[in-house]
């Protein structure tokens, strides 16, 4: 290692941390780690500056040490890859939230995202909505019919006082906390996903 490089750890430790953070929290959205991302950028900048200085020396005909040029480049690409993997994994989760919650993000998730991610969510949401609208004549809600239907009716338990709910047949059902219902599957699919209803058998 270069003598003025004091850090004792590996050059891409921080980048690895980013990836691990996602891996260790597989079922929630950890807050966007601005700090680590910035440190990674700085690392890349630092490496790049060093390489640039080295290249300058070469072109100026000064004595130089080319052995570290390629490893540095490799390190930069590796760090970049980790950063991209971090963003990519977060992006996939954001996408899955769109399928779970529809167009409205829960506050807990929203707070964990950075501005660019929120913007991505909104754009994705809009894209998907436009796509659904373009299907068939009147559009199709792809969020429905997610499981192979076994029965027309499902048994659900209401977890909160939701109030009146109209099924597609026009029946009014009062969803009060702790009431059991047998309802057409497609009617309650969204409510189950939102956590208003719970499937019971």
């Amino acid at each position: 290692m270069n003598s003025n490089d004091q850090s004792r750890g590996g050059v891409a430790d921080k980048a690895l941390q980013l990836v691990l953070e996602m891996k260790r929290n597989p079922d929630m959205m950890p807050p966007y780690n601005t700090d680590l991302m910035r440190q990674c950028q700085q690392k890349i900048d630092e490496l790049f500056q060093k390489n640039a200085a080295e290249v300058q020396k070469i072109s100026a005909g000064l004595p130089h040490d080319p052995t570290l040029l390629h490893p540095r480049l490799g390190a930069m690409i590796h760090i970049r890859r980790c950063m991209l993997a971090y963003i990519n994994e977060r992006k996939n989760r954001i996408r899955s939230y769109r399928w779970r919650y529809g167009g409205a993000l829960p506050v807990s998730v929203r707070n964990a995202l950075c501005d660019a991610e929120i913007q991505f969510f909104n754009e994705y949401s809009g894209t998907l909505a436009r796509f659904q609208q373009g299907l068939g004549e009147g559009g199709v809600n792809l969020l429905l019919h997610t499981a192979p239907p076994k029965t027309l009716f499902v048994q659900v338990r209401s977890l909160e006082d939701f109030g009146e709910f109209e099924t597609m047949d026009g029946n009014l059902v009062q969803l009060t906390k702790d009431s059991l219902h047998s309802l057409p599957r497609q009617d309650c699919e969204m409510l189950i996903r939102q956590g208003v209803l719970e499937l019971v058998h």
Partner: peptide, 16 residues
């Protein structure tokens, strides 16, 4: 009763 209702696809609500 709910078994019978399910056979006939009748929606229902149970309150205890």
């Amino acid at each position: 009763l709910t078994h019978l209702l399910k056979c006939d696809d009748i929606p229902f609500t149970i309150l205890t």
